[in-house]
């Protein structure tokens, strides 16, 4: 069932992806290929469609047109088991979205049970390991509300990783955090990237994009305007729109 993607092969392939909300065309034909193990950062002004693009990759948004391949699986094809694909594509949100009525450990084990069919001691062992990965093993019995924003976001990352995803999507995961808590989350993401995880990261943290990304994509008004290495994007931006955007965010 689970197709593991071999190194060097394509992890995500997006062709002519379009998405409209009513009359408002938010994605205007996106083409994107992401290799296994690649870390891609998406930058761009607010409202340019970054979240919509990310959310199309696990079908939280249904594309209006175009195709999305996750590994070999065509997301929009009839008969695709969307829950199986979502298991393979982890997502972390700006607003954490931990389940507030459950303990930190249960936040993780409930998905292990229901999605991967792993129960009891084995589920708790995996939850403990993923929590240790994000430095929060001691918080297993805590309620999300008792954690800081940074800790909650780290739990959210641990929860997504427990599903053993092939790809991780991050949508402005540090934007809701107090400045002093941002670093802890970015450090975990850096570690994850160094471990070889395929990552697509929508972010306003230009420092992170510069240091961790293999490739940076600049989106504006529903299109990929420019794409390249961090060096090319940040030091030699070509399009006037990217130049304008960078001069705004880097001051």
């Amino acid at each position: 069932m689970t197709t593991t993607i071999a190194p060097g092969t394509t992890a995500v392939s997006v062709r002519n992806l379009r998405k409209s909300f009513g009359q408002n065309e938010v994605l205007k034909g996106i083409d994107l290929d992401i290799r296994q193990g690649e870390v891609v950062c998406i930058i761009g002004p607010s409202g340019s469609g970054k979240s919509t693009l990310l959310r199309s990759l696990n079908l939280l948004e249904e594309p209006t047109a175009g195709t999305v391949l996750i590994g070999e699986t065509d997301l929009t094809a009839k008969g695709t088991d969307i829950n199986e694909v979502r298991r393979r594509v982890g997502m972390v949100f700006q607003s954490f979205n931990l389940f507030p009525h459950l303990t930190v450990e249960r936040n993780i084990t409930i998905a292990l049970e229901r999605v991967r069919g792993i129960k009891g001691a084995e589920a708790r062992r995996i939850a403990g390991e993923r929590l240790a990965d994000v430095g929060l093993a001691q918080k297993a019995t805590a309620r999300p509300a008792s954690l800081s924003g940074g800790q909650q976001q780290r739990v959210a990352i641990a929860r997504a990783l427990a599903m053993a995803p092939e790809i991780m999507l991050f949508d402005e995961v540090t934007s809701a955090l107090d400045p002093e808590l941002v670093k802890g989350v970015l450090n975990i993401m850096t570690k994850l990237a160094e471990g070889g995880m395929t990552m697509i990261v929508v972010t306003h943290e230009m420092g992170f994009a510069r240091q961790v990304a293999d490739r940076v994509i600049f989106m504006d008004r529903g299109q990929v305007v420019e794409s390249g290495t961090p060096d090319a994007i940040f030091n030699r931006p070509e399009s006037p729109r990217l130049q304008a955007f960078l001069s705004e965010v880097l001051t």
Partner: peptide
Amino acid sequence: HHGQLEAARALGMPYGTAMSLIVVPQGVR
């Protein structure tokens, strides 16, 4: 918050599971 259903679905939970284990318990409370 709609993010609760989204987070559960994004983990791979089917709609009914996500509603009954995540959304409805909070809604009832």
